[in-house]
């Protein structure tokens, strides 16, 4: 659900993301076919792969054309493309940190609260112990001679 919310926020950028994904996939597909073709022995398989490679190349061309047309991709303006890519990396980082943080925070928060509680538990008995010791000390002090109470404090 979180991911969908982010996609909705992205609005028009979502289509660009989809187109980029398609473009990257089509590149990978073309490479896979090229590699597969170099391992082919059977002429039948070779023919099929060649045909499919050609289809994959056409598909890549269609997507690249679409992206250039919509100014999602600037193959002739390297500076612009790099600037855009950097922006996207930044944005991706932001999205990831924003969607990951709440979970982490809640977990950390839980952990922290548990730790705090544990710490508090630790602290309270200590305080109580100290208080009781102090009380005892006070009792000692009140009941016994001051010298003994002083020695008990140093312990």
């Amino acid at each position: 659900m979180e991911f969908e919310d982010i996609l909705d926020q992205a609005g028009k950028k979502r289509d660009e993301l989809i187109a980029t994904e398609l473009l990257v996939s089509s590149k990978a597909t073309v490479r896979a076919y090229a590699v597969a073709l170099t391992e082919t022995i059977s002429p039948e398989v070779r023919e099929i792969l060649k045909r499919q490679l050609s289809q994959a190349l056409n598909q890549h061309a269609r997507i690249a054309d679409y992206m250039i047309e919509r100014e999602m991709y600037h193959p002739f303006d390297l500076e612009k493309q790099i600037k855009k890519d950097k922006k996207k990396v930044k944005k991706a980082r932001k999205i990831v940190s924003e969607s990951a943080q709440p979970k982490k925070r809640s977990q950390k928060g839980k952990k922290r609260s548990v730790e705090d509680e544990a710490a508090a538990d630790d602290v309270v008995p200590r305080l109580e112990g100290e208080a009781s010791m102090a009380d005892q000390g006070a009792a000692h002090e009140s009941g016994r001679q001051p010298v003994e109470s002083g020695s008990s404090r140093t312990e």
């Binding site: 990978a28 597909t29 896979a32 590699v35 597969a36 391992e39 082919t40 022995i41 398989v45 499919q52």
Partner: peptide, 26 residues
């Protein structure tokens, strides 16, 4: 056709189908 397939050939075909399947689902 199966008889004609080499080992490496088969593996590469598998590779291609895996990639295409993931592309299709995406």
């Amino acid at each position: 056709l199966d008889l004609d397939l080499g080992v490496h050939e088969t593996l590469e075909l598998h590779e291609v189908t895996t990639l295409r399947r993931s592309t299709l689902l995406k």
